[in-house]
Simulated assay, not measured.
Amino acid sequence: MQLLLLAFAVGLVSAHDHIDPSEVSGDWRTISVAADNFEKIDEDGPMRMYFRQLQCHEECRKLAGRFYAKANGQCREFNRVAVLDEEKGVYVAEYAGKNIFKIIAQKDDVLAFLNQNIDEEGKETNMILVVGKRDSLTEEEKQKLVKVAEEKGIPKENIRHVAETDTCPE
C-alpha cells in the first residue's frame, strides 16, 4: 500500500522530512481517493479504504492503521502496520498485495498519502489517499488534488470524494 504521501502540492503543507506523531496519531476518515487503475478504488474495489484511525509507534517508524473496505456492499475491518524503510523514506505494508507509501502532505486536519499497490498478480496501481478530521476538502484543496493527481499520471476523472459513501461502522 505505497501510500507515498507526496507533498500535496503547494498548499496543504510543505513536505515534511519528519512526521510529527502528535499530528498523525488519532481518528481519521477517508475524504478522497484517486488511482490510475480505477477498478481498485471503485465502489467495491480493494483499495477504496475507509480509514478510522492511525497510530505512530516507535517515533513513527511503524504506522498502524485501522480501516474498512467493502466487498459486495459489506464492510470488513482491517488492521495493518506499515514499517518505515528508512533508506527509501517510505512505508511498506501488506494489504491487497504490497503497498509502498509516503505522506505527501500534512496539515492539522488533513493527511495525503501517495501509494503504490502491487497486487498478487504483480499489477501496479498508483494512488492518492486523503484522510481528514473533517468530511470534505476545500475548493482550493480539491484543485491541488487534481494537480498532484495529474502530475502522477492519474486522470482527474479517477478522483473520488468518498466520505459520503462511507457507511461502515465507527
Rank of each mutant, 00 (worst) to 15 (best):
L129T: 07
K152V: 02
K123P: 06
M1Q: 07
L145H: 00
G11N: 12
R61F: 12
T165G: 00
E121V: 06
R160Q: 08
L12Q: 12
N115D: 12
Y68Q: 10
T165L: 06
R80Y: 07
M127D: 08
E139D: 05
N37L: 04
S22A: 15
F101P: 07
E139P: 05
G65K: 12
G73Y: 04
V90H: 06
L12R: 02
K142F: 00
V90R: 12
L84H: 06
A64C: 11
L137F: 04
A82F: 12
V10S: 15
E157S: 11
E139Q: 05
K147L: 02
E86G: 14
S32N: 03
K152P: 01
R160Y: 10
Q53T: 14
V92D: 08
D108P: 06
N99C: 10
R48Q: 14
E124D: 04
L84P: 06
Q55N: 15
G153R: 11
N117L: 00
E77K: 07
N79K: 12
L5D: 10
C75Y: 04
F101S: 13
I128Y: 00
P155Q: 11
Y50I: 02
L4N: 05
I19D: 03
Y68I: 03
E77F: 03
N99S: 05
F67V: 09
K133I: 01
G153T: 01
K40L: 14
I154Y: 02
N79R: 14
K107P: 01
C168N: 03
L54Y: 15
L12E: 05
A93Q: 11
A82R: 04
Y95V: 06
E141P: 00
M47K: 08
V110D: 02
A82K: 11
G97P: 05
M49D: 04
V92M: 15
D135M: 01
K144H: 01
K133D: 02
V33N: 07
